[in-house]
Structure formats: C-alpha cells, structure tokens
C-alpha cells in the first residue's frame, strides 16, 4: 500500500499510543494552572440538593457507598458532598456498602470531612468518647438529638475555631458498612435496621445509638442516596423504593448516567448526579449556600475534563478531515485493524 504515506493517511491511521500520550499531557496541565471555570447547575442535581436542604435533625438520610476504589475519582466527591450537606444541616446519615471495599471509602470520606488540619471541616467525636462521658448531674437522653448533645458537650469542650460544627458518631452518622447480598439486607432494613446491623463497623451496638433509636427501620429514613459504579443502584430502587417507598437519589459514573435518566423522568428517583459534573454542581450549590468554604475536588476536576473533552473533539475533527482529505470516503478504503 504505497499510497498510505501521505500526511492524511498517517493522521487517519494514527497509532493510538500518540493519542494516549496527548491525553496524558492534557490531563496533567490543569494541575499547574487553576482555571476555575464556572459551572451551571441542572435540574437533576438540584433535585437532590433541594430535597436534602428540606431535611433537618429529626429526619435521616442513608448513603450507600456502593462503589470501589476504581471509580472513586468520580464517586467519592458525590458522597462527600451529600454527606457534608447532611452534616451541615444536622441530618443523621446511615452509611452502607454493597461491596466490602465500600467500608474503607466511607471511612475515608468521614476522615476528609472531619480533617482537623483543614478549615471548614467538622469536628468529630467518636461514639465511645461521648457515650461514656460523665455529664455530671444531667443524664444523657437515650434519643438525644444533635442540638441537645451539643449543649451538653460544649460545657467541657470547645469547638475548633475554623470548624463548621460538631459531628457525633451514633447521632450524626453511623457506618453500618458492608453486608453480603445487600438487596436482601435492604429488604430486611425495611423491618428493622438493628436486625440487619446489630453492630456498626467498629463493633458498637447500634441499638444504643440515638439515631437508630429515632429511625428504627429504613421506612423512617427520608432519603436513600446510592453512589455507585454498577447497577447496584437498581437494588435501591427495587427493594427500598418500590417495596417500602424510600425516596431514592442516584450518584453514578458519567458512563452510566444516561442509563438511569429514565427513572428520573418517571419520578421514581428525586435526582441524579452523573459523573464528576454532577458532583461539581453539588459542590457549587454547597458553597453558594455557605455549607462549605470552597468547592471541592470535583469542581477542580472539571477543568481537566473540559480540556480532555476539547482534545477529543479536536481528535474527531482531525480524524474526519483526514477521512475526507485522504479520499477514504471515495475509495472505500478501510481503517487498518488493531494498532
């Protein structure tokens, strides 16, 4: 094939390793130059945000860390954003996981949101710490709310200056963690949470936790947010929403996002965050309403994504120019297979 030597032929049959190299360069550049391009919010994400914003400490949210470290770049900012929103509004958060690796991701998210070295985070108090504390002549109510506990706790403790508030394990969040065959567990939680999770991830008995006492079954949970890189989201829809009516929201990777828009239109879910963009939109709203000092990782990641998308569009244009200029549309010539 002697004719394969023109510039168009070379471009048309470009070795894919050049594309890989270009992509690598393009995703690294934005790390050095912060662009901070503005992001507009969409109905899909606003649906979740407004729903969580209408909740308060007598309600509860369940967040499913239904992904693995693989999709963490897209999924982790979503769960952290929703969790931050809940913490700021003092809404208790139950944390579950479809896969064993979800436990570590949940711990990581809590650690990030309660990092003492970062301004604008929360100050965490572990369950054993506040539960076994001596409150003097005041007894601790068994169904103590966040505000009641803060009043008692702040007599002897002071909130870090740059912290956004307290977060008490067992009152504001509990990591229930991974359980095998999670769809069956979801069904079981419709009857009782304690029956499915007698202890949390750290072995603390859940039946003594105020947030579990106030929300004994998943029926009393006001929103389930499943953040996932697989179709585990449908378990929540089938077994939590359809069987006992828990309102559900999805957080899925960009690759899957279009699959589940159907459920949004049919009204079966309250909203959906799709990929990094979904998480970035949530972060923008959090900052707008003062729930965070600045946007998080997703917002910064959108710069990278912008440039990467531009590269792909340029590649498509180049490919098509080569396709026509090289005469491939006429001669019926074909792309070489493989490399």
């Amino acid at each position: 094939m002697a004719e394969n030597n023109s510039i168009w032929d070379k471009l048309f049959n470009m070795d894919r390793r050049w594309i890989f190299l270009l992509m690598a360069v393009v995703v690294i550049i934005p790390f050095f130059f912060k662009m901070g391009l503005p992001i507009n919010t969409t109905d899909e994400v606003e649906g979740i945000y407004n729903y969580v914003d209408s909740l308060e400490q007598n309600d509860a949210v369940m967040i499913g860390f239904d992904y693995q470290p693989g999709t963490m770049a897209e999924n982790q900012p979503m769960s952290e954003a929703v969790m931050r929103h809940c913490f700021a509004r003092k809404v208790p958060v139950f944390i579950t996981a479809v896969l064993p690796l979800g436990n570590g991701l949940a711990e990581e998210a809590i650690a990030n949101l309660t990092d003492p070295d970062e301004p604008g985070t929360f100050q965490r108090v572990r369950y054993r710490e506040w539960h076994s504390y001596d409150y003097g002549q005041d007894s601790l109510p068994s169904r103590v709310t966040h505000d009641q506990l803060v009043n008692l706790w702040e007599r002897d403790h002071q909130l870090r200056e740059d912290a956004m508030g307290w977060v008490f394990e067992g009152v504001d969040y509990v990591i229930l963690g991974y359980a095998p065959l999670f769809h069956i567990v979801l069904l079981g939680m419709g009857r009782s949470i304690v029956s499915q999770y007698p202890a949390d991830l750290y072995g603390n008995p859940t039946e003594n936790m105020p947030m579990v006492k106030r929300n004994k079954s998943a029926r009393e949970v006001d929103l389930g947010v499943t953040v996932a890189g697989s179709s585990a989201v449908l378990w929540w829809l089938t077994y939590a929403h359809e069987s006992y009516g828990m309102p559900i929201a999805f957080g899925v990777t960009a690759v899957m996002a279009t699959d589940y828009l159907v459920y949004l239109q049919s009204g079966q879910i309250v909203g959906q965050m799709g990929g990094l963009r979904g998480a970035a939109e949530y972060e923008v709203m959090l900052k707008r309403d003062g729930y965070s000092i600045e946007e998080g990782k997703a917002f910064r990641g959108m710069d990278v994504q912008s440039i990467a998308h531009i590269l792909i569009v340029i590649l498509i244009v180049v490919g098509n120019v080569a396709y026509f200029a090289g005469g491939y549309h006429r001669k019926g010539r074909r792309l070489r297979a493989g490399r």
Partner: peptide, 29 residues
Amino acid sequence: RWVQIPIQSSMFSLLAFYIASAAFRAFRA
C-alpha cells in the same frame, strides 16, 4: 489506602485514554 486504592483508580483512569482513542476511530462521517 496506599496500595489497593491507587491501583484500582489507575485501572479506571485507563478509560479516559481508551475513550479518546475509541472516539477518534469511531466518529467518522
């Protein structure tokens, strides 16, 4: 945290490279 998470994240990030190359080859008029 320092072995499993980075390895798995790297696997997923391959997607960006593969999508670029697949788009280049697939989207022709």
